[in-house]
Design a protein around this nucleic acid. Sequence first.
RNA 1: GGCCAGGUGGCGGAGUGGCUACGCAGCGGCCUGCAAAGCCGUGGACACCGGUUCGAAUCCGGUCCUGGCCUCCA
Length: 488
Amino acid sequence: MALSLYNTRTREKQLFEPLSPGRVGMYVCGPTVYDFAHVGNARPVVVFDVLYRLLKTSYEHVRYVRNITDVDDKIIAAAEKTGEKIEDITVRTTDAYHEDMAALGALPPDIEPRATDHVEQMIAMTERLIARGNAYEADGHVLFAVATDENYGKLSGRNRDEMIAGARVEVAPYKKDPADFVLWKPSTGNQPGWDSPWGFGRPGWHIECSAMAREYLGLTFDIHGGGRDLVFPHHENEVAQSTCAHDEAEFARYWVHNGFLTVEGEKMSKSIGNVLLVRDLLTKAPGEALRLNMLSTHYRQPLDWTEEGVSQARKILDRWYRAAGDAEPTTCEAVVDALEDDMNTPKAIAVLHELANAASQGDAVAAGQLRGGANLMGVLLNSADAWFKGSGVVEYDISFMNKLAEPLPEIANRIDSQVTAAIAKWDEMTDEQQGTIYELCINLLIDFRTLAREHREFKTSDIIRDLLLDANITLEDGADGTTWRRTS
RNA sequence: GGCCAGGUGGCGGAGUGGCUACGCAGCGGCCUGCAAAGCCGUGGACACCGGUUCGAAUCCGGUCCUGGCCUCCA
């Protein structure tokens, strides 16, 4: 089966065929770097990461471009509010963004251009639009004249009358037409700016994507992605600018948009106070669980982000890791088929469940396919051991050690000097050292419990198991002895 | 107000005309000292009202509800 994608422009699922055989160009709108990324920001990143991984399996040359918007009025506002320098804000936020997205298992794009590095190209494109009569200068601004583009509105499926009728925002007096939008605007005071033919100023929002897509992907490229909310006006305006500046050359061929996200049934907004930062979520659940939760809804569907959903995703991963073990990943055609069907990740997940069932019953082929299929979606990337025991989001907590003497003094006597010494200077140890001691303690307790069980002192063994459970450690008695894992 | 999505079992979530995915939770059983994990089995849905059809969750019309966009929010 071949890849098909739902194209916003044509409003139907289409077979994907790249412009040049074996070569795919994809542009995805990236973040405006003024604050930490929230789950809503993360959705397109995860969604297009799946597409990126999928494309790489079929095409030799895939160029994925995702921009960083580092000049924007919101950034200026943030700087004014805190007094922090704009560059400090954008650099710091960009770094945090990279960390957070990596934690969600998203591969870095091939090229990540920053808007401020491409002002020259934006000025050139703006000049070209003026020369062609598609843009005009007014009151220090340069505006795109929507009326000069007969195709304006086709992507988002709206016409100018509707837009004017529905306009909620007061129209700036210098606009010839209420629908015209800014390509360049003047900067004053502390606002960042660049010299241009129209004076000191800065670019409008939409022009950066047009300029950077042109720079790295050419006049016409294959896939343009982003959130649904960007269809209008952002993407509509991008199309208008680019096609007009490029003598009507087609801009993006396939427009792919992910649906919106709500939190516990409510829209996410600062006023409600339910904006979930990826950063915060990562302290409570592994990135892989967040990612799987994200992918358990089809990308075009609205996604309701809930704690219950994250917890379910985590349980599913537990099961998959248990079933797959550390099998060598192999290709699973059924998963590929599901993903090639407009990235039907829920269907792919259903296939993985079936593979997990088979793998649990000892099917080694299924175990490999489970690994491989899941990897294609960017999950099941750890070793099973790392998943179950890894530090991840588990904080090494020695409080349970301190409680040992209470119910079972004899355990304390068995704790060796190495552990005792370590506990004394616990706070000075690195995470890794703590982890080592932590595991040592767990294994000591397991040994002691095994001894108790051999003597059929089940009351003692159950106390130990409960003690560990309090510390988020679940014990499992198997044929080959007792193993432990963090509690889900 | 205009335009556009979506409403599937307790929960999550596929599915565009017939054979009622899949998972979580639940229930029963096997296993276990007891658990956990695993295995076997099991009930349960298609917002509402009409229509088309031999037959609709799936097509058409209407109603209700939720969400998005309407000039710089993924």
